[in-house]
């Protein structure tokens, strides 16, 4: 009950889940026609994406990821006292999917649960809320879940996004840290709604409900087909935004933490695609070995990309106590966030 800001938080374990179906470049090349498989790989760095089955939702992926987490040693469902679910593809308009997840996992009813709607910046936002929950004494063990199924938004004839996005989920257990030192944070955030139109599903919300009209498909100047019910991405605008804001956010979080780049062992960016990551790496002059990547076989999984990389670092023993990782999420919103974590 004591209010205290001295309780630190850390990532205890991460569980992942990817749907079974694979969409590889060969299949994409056959469907899209004008790009060879090698060219898709060269441009995106992605070999295959995992795609949710018909009828399989982000909540289903989330539940699998949570079960994979709960199977890990030292993780107990009874101890979990909060759920944050970050998704842009909930099961229902209402109720909130996090409540359904609470019940599906058999967690106690005396816990808080809610969804947040964020994309590529969602995991870092979620970490901030989770560590706030722990610091404020609202919770001791937070289940932070990210899950999305962008494939369901994407028009099959829109190569500009179909080549990039995959479906997937992550479940992270955030616990109070025994040493009072917080190992998550500091954080910096940013929002620029003026760029909301650059990455958007124009119809389906209250502003523009789905209708016959919004289902009408149109061909754009590059030959991509989409309707207002589909995901639209202005790749050029997103690239320009990323190059302008991400380096600033990175510098800001280093400054806030009192660190310099040499103090950072790894920089984990939102895994947008090879092309954007290499542009960032060159611009920010980050050595390749400090920039772990993991998207080649899963694509851009939106809010799950960062925990997917951290999970591999943890599993392979590359992330050791005392090491520091900078996380930077950026994209749809436009929204971005950065933080420093250590084990």
């Amino acid at each position: 009950m004591m209010q205290s800001n001295t309780v630190g938080a850390r990532i205890e374990a991460i569980g992942l889940y990817f749907p079974d179906a694979s969409l590889d470049n060969k299949k994409l090349a056959e469907e899209l026609g004008d790009w060879a498989p090698e060219k898709i790989l060269e441009k995106t760095g992605i070999r295959e994406r995992r795609i949710a089955a018909e009828g399989q939702t982000a909540l289903d992926l989330a539940e699998h990821a949570c079960r994979n987490l709960l199977d890990k040693p030292g993780v107990s469902a009874e101890e979990i006292d909060f759920i944050i679910l970050c998704t842009q593809a909930p099961d229902y308009i209402l109720p909130t999917s996090a409540c359904i997840l609470q019940h599906a996992l058999g967690l106690r009813t005396s816990i808080g649960a809610f969804d947040i709607n964020l994309g590529c910046s969602g995991f870092v936002y979620g970490l901030s809320i989770a560590s706030g929950l722990i610091a404020s004494g609202s919770a001791q063990q937070v289940l932070l879940v990210t899950s999305d199924t962008y494939s369901k938004f994407i028009n099959k004839k829109d190569r500009s996004v179909r080549t990039l996005f995959g479906d997937g989920a992550s479940a992270s257990l955030i616990v109070s840290s025994p040493n009072l030192q917080s190992t998550i944070g500091p954080f910096v955030f940013g929002t620029d709604g003026a760029g909301a139109k650059h990455l958007i599903v124009p119809a389906g919300g209250a502003r523009n409900a789905n209708s016959e009209e919004t289902r009408i498909e149109q061909v754009d100047g590059s030959g991509n087909v989409r309707s207002q019910d589909n995901l639209f991405m202005d790749g050029a605008a997103i690239m320009a935004f990323t190059l302008a804001e991400v380096p600033k956010a990175f510098s800001a979080v280093l400054l806030k933490a009192g660190l310099v780049i040499d103090d950072i062992d790894y920089v984990v960016f939102h895994q947008a695609n090879a092309f954007m990551l290499s542009a960032l790496r060159k611009k920010m002059k980050i050595p390749e070995e400090k920039m772990p990547c993991r998207f080649e076989n899963v694509g851009n999984t939106v809010s799950s990309t960062i925990p997917i990389v951290i999970e591999e670092l943890m599993a392979s023993g590359k992330f050791q106590p005392g090491q520091k990782i900078a996380l930077v999420g950026f994209g749809v919103g436009l929204s971005w966030s950065a933080c420093i974590i250590s084990l």
């Binding site: 441009k43 500009s160 790749g235 690239m239 190059l243 542009a279």
Partner: peptide, 27 residues
């Protein structure tokens, strides 16, 4: 001069000149 070329060029200009050009004009 497709969307991918434009995106690539944005990155290239940023890298070589450290400038952020207007996207519409670039297109």
């Amino acid at each position: 001069w497709d969307s991918l070329a434009v995106v690539s060029t944005i990155a290239l200009i940023d890298e070589v000149y450290d400038k952020a050009v207007d996207i519409q004009l670039l297109q």
